[in-house]
């Protein structure tokens, strides 16, 4: 049953930010599968007077390839509406003059084409999946312990995500492994970092209280958004687990069965 209190805030709402994996689709073999009702829900948001952006910790593909996949699944999405961590990391590396050792999925490598990677002085990790081999983790570890001031960037800090064949470990697990090995704290770029949400809000030219985040990850989507002043609603799709509704530190402003139900409730409040 959906919480019936949160939609009242939607009357003053100006923008909606959607997480992608677990909200729009479940990843898996090939392109994965669209979650029933999500394609139409995105269309209805786009037809409304609300601004819409997509905020993802997806780091397995370039933005172009990733958006093309969503389009093949039937979603009306364009590259400029999507905010993943890799371009944000590239901006930080350039600004600070850092040369990364990359432990990422092969598909996202082209995002780093413009960056000097010789003689690395920091490590960047993303959701590398099968590339998280002992040997690759060891190489990243050796780069870090060899630096006088080790710097580790993690594109997100998720614990796990859901693929069609079950739950899979996410980048946060390997971030924790390297943090523990090297006694350091990673700089997280992606959700739940406030800077990441601010970038998306800035793009819509909105204040935090004017925007709502919808995601399947209670801590990173909902908690991250709430932390910077947005409302956060969780869907019971993707990686959602019933224990999320009794979480000790994060309480969603609302919990809904899926994106379609969330959009129904938002638009109903706005007299659509």
């Amino acid at each position: 049953m959906a919480d019936t209190n949160w939609p009242s805030c939607c009357r003053s709402l100006k923008g909606v930010v959607l997480d992608m994996c677990g909200v729009l689709y479940d990843s898996g073999e090939g392109d994965g599968v669209a979650i029933p009702g999500s394609i139409e829900a995105v269309q209805r948001l786009k037809a409304s007077d609300l601004q819409l952006r997509f905020c993802t910790n997806e780091t397995q593909a370039t933005r172009e390839k990733f958006v093309a996949k969503l389009q093949r699944l039937g979603f009306d999405i364009s590259v400029s509406e999507v905010f993943p961590p890799a371009p944000a990391v590239v901006a930080v590396l350039k600004q600070r003059g850092l040369r990364p050792h990359l432990l990422v999925y092969d598909g996202v490598l082209p995002e780093f084409d413009s960056i000097d990677k010789t003689n690395p002085n920091c490590v960047v990790i993303g959701d590398a999946a099968e590339n998280f081999s002992y040997q690759n983790l060891n190489e990243a570890f050796r780069v870090l312990v060899g630096l006088e001031k080790p710097v580790l960037f993690s594109m997100g800090q998720g614990r796990y995500y859901k693929e069609t064949d079950g739950l899979k470990l996410d980048v946060g697990v390997f971030m924790k492994a390297l943090e523990y090995a090297c006694d350091l704290e990673a700089e997280v770029i992606g959700k739940p970092s406030p800077m990441f949400f601010q970038t998306v809000l800035g793009d819509m030219n909105l204040q935090p209280h004017e925007a709502l985040m919808i995601g399947d990850d209670l801590v990173n989507d909902v908690g991250g958004a709430q932390h910077c002043g947005m409302k956060g609603v969780q869907v019971r799709t993707g990686k959602y687990r019933p224990s999320d509704e009794r979480h000790p530190t994060v309480t969603a402003d609302g919990t809904v069965d899926n994106l379609a139900q969330a959009v129904d409730m938002i638009l109903a409040q706005r007299g659509h």
């Binding site: 002992y134 983790l137 614990r159 470990l169 946060g172 697990v173 390997f174 924790k176 523990y180 090995a181």
Partner: peptide
């Protein structure tokens, strides 16, 4: 243990993987 020493240099011990699984599962 965080790491151990091999002939070819330092290498990750079991600790980092245990810490990762702890984080993943709570």
């Amino acid at each position: 243990a965080r790491y151990y020493k091999r002939k070819d240099g330092l290498a990750l011990g079991p600790g980092p993987f245990v810490a990762g699984l702890e984080y993943a599962t709570g």
